[in-house]
């Protein structure tokens, strides 16, 4: 078992968003969490990654058998949790290569592996970038600064393939889905997936799931999962919408 969320309740600021949420994810599985806009899907990804400003009021999260809530943001990442952000952050003055070298070496150090020197790292990065069709010039630019939507997603995918997480969370919670960008990320995710890794997709639209096939689909409403099923559940949502699962009409 990779991830087990038990009776989780969490607040964003003063507002209770996650209410008695339960979910188990095993290695090799792809789970999709679907829900209407504003249901708190992104909150779930932030609670998992430990973003400041989100407070867990009760419940547990077990990641690889360890208590995730006791770990710092960076420890969670080093243990193998990776969030593909919907809106990646721009970091002026920090080139992609230098940023990723810090990240890779921090992870290696945590696992007792020797750090990579600049030459070794650049070689590795260029190989991975090539696979994703990333122009080496992009690696010299400051992280996400002036990147198009597609370039930002390419960089997210590159980070994931370089860091090789056990659990990737793909947050595409908002309705404004950039299909080209999603295709790029899906390619990266599909290549990375194997029997030791798992993927959690958070989305509003069924469309994303045509690029990444989920084993399980969960409907998220009113702070928790109201129905679970297989891929056919997402098709039902595509036809009928979320109204059957929410107390409020959309």
């Amino acid at each position: 078992m990779l991830l087990k969320i038990e009776d989780l309740c969490a607040k964003a600021g003063d507002k209770e968003i996650i209410k008695n949420f339960n979910l188990t994810v095993n290695e090799g599985e792809v789970h999709a969490i679907m829900g209407p806009n504003g249901a708190g899907k992104s909150t779930l990804s932030y609670v998992l990654t430990g973003k400041p400003g989100y407070e867990v009021t009760s419940g547990h999260i077990w990641f690889k058998g360890k208590d995730l809530l006791k770990m710092s943001v960076e420890e969670r990442a080093r243990e193998g949790l990776f969030l593909i952000m919907q809106y990646p952050v721009e970091i002026p003055g920090v080139p992609v290569t230098s940023f990723l070298k810090h990240a890779v070496n921090a992870n290696r150090q945590y696992h007792g592996e020797p750090e990579l020197d600049t030459m070794e790292f650049i070689k590795l990065l260029r190989e991975e970038a090539k696979k994703l069709g990333i122009d080496p010039e992009m690696l010299k630019r400051p992280v996400n600064v002036g990147f198009s939507g597609g370039e930002k997603k390419r960089l997210e995918a590159l980070q994931m393939t370089v860091l090789k997480p056990s659990l990737a969370i793909l947050d595409e919670a908002d309705s404004g889905l950039d299909i080209d960008a999603v295709k790029v990320v899906s390619k990266g995710v599909n290549e990375l997936m194997n029997e030791n890794r798992a993927l959690l997709i958070i989305t509003h639209y069924q469309k994303l799931l045509t690029y990444i096939q989920p084993h399980f689909v969960h409907i998220f409403a009113d702070g928790h999962i109201v129905k679970s099923g297989d891929k056919s559940l997402s098709e039902e949502i595509e036809q009928n919408g979320y109204s059957a699962y929410t107390r409020e009409k959309l």
């Binding site: 710092s72 943001v73 960076e74 969670r76 990442a77 952000m85 810090h102 990240a103 921090a106």
Partner: peptide, 14 residues
């Protein structure tokens, strides 16, 4: 804070 979180979420210490 968003930049800090982004970097930490990739494993870079605070």
């Amino acid at each position: 804070q968003d930049q800090l979180f982004y970097m930490r979420s990739r494993g870079i210490g605070e």
